[in-house]
Each structure stands twice: as structure tokens, then as C-alpha cells.
Amino acid sequence: MIEIENLHKSFGSLEVIKGIDLHIRPGEVVCIIGPSGSGKSTVLRCINRLEDATSGRIILDGSDLSDPATNINQVRAEATMVFQGFNLFPHMTVLQNVTLGPVKVRRMSKEAADALGIELLQKVGLAEKAGSFPDQLSGGQQQRVAIARALALRPKAILFDEPTSALDPELVGEVLEVMKQLAREGMTMVVVTHEMGFAREVADRVVFIDQGIIQEENTPDELFGNPQNPRLRDFLGKVLSHG
């Protein structure tokens, strides 16, 4: 589904990603954990081509992202993104936020897109908010709308970049619940998260990134239960004592 081979990314002279290989299978849920500044977001942003890789290959459902012949807009719609800060479009209603992609990118009719939009809003439990504007919603509700917006493209995978980090603690659960449901339905998901409980429960595989490389990857049971890498042990010691 997503094949990352020897990914390198530098910002100017700062090398942030120093050779990452990661293959994600269809239907797999991969959680990426690691200290802040270690390059987790950058990996996701390279998959969605919000950043151009410095070198290496990323193949998304058969399309090579570095190939100039690839229609980057269509490829992006196959791996949509959910951001830490939601980034809903404030001048559009909730339903318009969700249907913009289907109408403009997938060339769906407005009626079909509205029907799809309502269906997806029902899925995230917000059908009654279809006509509201984003600033009328709580953070948790906004993030659920953002998930519906990402789903509306019928993507092959969804990339989550710390989807609950900007939320008040009491709102985290409702967003994780929606994500768990997606995982159960077989959606391919790459999730950068600090929610170790979520990673343990939902992930098929957990990847620990530090200093721009994958230091360790394993099933959640193994990675959390029997961490090998000293940096990982140190990291888990810190986050688990906080959470």
C-alpha cells in the first residue's frame, strides 16, 4: 500500500530524516511514536507530498511519488491527512468541508457528494452539525469532521499527525473512538501519536522514530512489553510516567 524506501529529507543543511524504510500493508494500522522533533510529522508529510523528499522512494498504491509523470493531486487524495490543528475551512459549513474534495477532486455531483457527506458525518456522530460552522464546534467535534473530510475522498490510507494532541483531555476519547472504528473496518492508517494506550490497543505495528531513523519496530505487545533500544526504553519511561 505504502512503500517507503531509504527516505532522506533535509531542510537546508539540517538532515531531519536519515534513511527510513517502511512498508505498510493494506488494512494495516501503524503507529509512529517518538520524541518531539524526531521527524515523525516529516515522514507523514513526505507521504502526502506536502514535503518533497530529498532522496529515496515513496510508492503509494503503485504510484511513484518522485516520478514527475505522477499526477500528484490525484495521488494525494489517496492518502489524505488529519492534522493536529484540525485545519477545517472556517468559511464553509461542516458539510461543505466534507464535500469539497469529492466535488472538486473526484468530480462527484453535488447531490451524491451531499449524500456521502451526510453518511460520513453520521459515521463520526455529527450528522446534526452538517449546517454548522467549524467555530461552533468543540475541538473533538472539529477533529471528527476533519476525519470525515479525509474519508470523503475514499482514500486508500489516512495519515494522522497527532490527531488528539491539541485537544482537551476530556475530548480525546471521542476522537480515538472514531479512529478505532475505522481500524476495525479495515482502513489503512498511519498514526503519529502520543496516546500509548491507543497504540497498544489498535496498532498492528508500532514504529519508534528518533533522530531521523527507525530505532525499533514491532508489534505493540513486543515493543511496549519488551523494548530493546535504550532510547526507546528511555522514551517509554518518560511518557508512561507522565500519562
Binding site: N73, N87, L88, K104, V105, A150
Partner: peptide, 30 residues
Amino acid sequence: VDVGQTEAGRSIGLTRIQTMRYIIWPQAFR
């Protein structure tokens, strides 16, 4: 207009021009 708006637009597959037209311009115009 927050760069996150552009990123959100691009991330769902809108082109640069579509992102400007449907997302950035209406917010900028206000």
C-alpha cells in the same frame, strides 16, 4: 491566511489554483 489551510486543501487533492479559489481567497477577501 494560516498555512494549515493550504496544507489541508492540498492534502485532499485540490490543485494550487483550486486551493486558492475555494479556500484561501474567500478567507483573504474578508
